[in-house]
């Protein structure tokens, strides 16, 4: 995410928003490929254990998953609002929208916490006796479930921290209507987090 902080001795004089955006997109590519490895594993193991993946997916809480999908989609909307408001010079509205985005991100994490806790409560966690007693497909399903939603949750957390820093920057007028590439790039990162969830949700909760 650090790509967004591009000021340096020379670029302070010579600002390059396009360059910053290129850097951010390259970073997003690396994120996509990072998750790509996990999606690849998911595809192979689903192909090898279709029936067990089918059964295991039924155990996940679709309501909580759908709620989280809604939360993240809404947060992407408020993110865009924040950028758009700042571009129009409406600092307060922009801050409000950004604050909402952060709150929605936190709500997602809280939801996730309850979801994971419930699964732990049923003895469904990596290396658990319950999973060891089931088939290998179940074990792989939950292994991937925890790895992928865990890595995604970590990204949500990083996103929340990042957006909070940008929020402070806007308050302190370090990010202004004339120079808001940092907010723009953070928005790109937030949409990436959103889009990965858009794939995780059907793969784990809906395809049964």
């Amino acid at each position: 995410m650090d790509e967004s902080h591009t000021t340096s001795e020379s670029s302070a004089i010579h600002r390059d928003d396009v360059g910053s955006r290129i850097g951010m997109w390259l970073f997003l590519f690396t994120e996509l490929i990072l998750f790509g490895g996990l999606f690849l594993l998911y595809a192979v193991y689903r192909y090898l254990h279709p029936q067990e993946f089918h059964e295991a997916a039924k155990e996940l809480n679709v309501v909580l998953g759908a709620a989280n999908t809604l939360i993240l989609l809404t947060s992407s909307f408020t993110m865009v609002m924040s950028i758009s408001y700042l571009g129009e010079g409406e600092k307060k509205k922009s801050l409000l929208a950004l604050g909402l985005t952060i709150a929605l991100g936190l709500a997602f994490l809280v939801n996730k916490y309850f979801e994971w806790s419930a699964k732990f409560h049923h003895g469904l966690y990596p290396n658990s006796p319950e999973l060891a007693g089931r088939g290998q497909g179940d074990n792989l399903f939950y292994g991937l479930y925890y790895s992928m939603t865990g890595l995604h949750g970590l990204h949500v957390l990083v996103g929340v921290v990042l957006l909070s820093v940008v929020l402070i920057y806007i308050v302190k007028d370090k990010v202004t209507p004339d120079n808001f590439i940092v907010l723009d790039n953070s928005g790109l990162y937030w949409h990436l987090v959103d889009i990965i969830w858009i794939y995780l949700f059907p793969l784990f909760y809906l395809i049964t």
């Binding site: 490929i33 490895g37 290396n127 290998q136």
Partner: peptide
């Protein structure tokens, strides 16, 4: 484009060693 793949692979090795995920 290639390095993130080793990143996730090595992360999974660490996860395996800590939590026994089994992948």
């Amino acid at each position: 484009l290639a390095t993130p793949i080793i990143g996730i692979t090595l992360l999974l090795v660490i996860l395996e060693r800590f939590f026994g995920v089994g992948i």
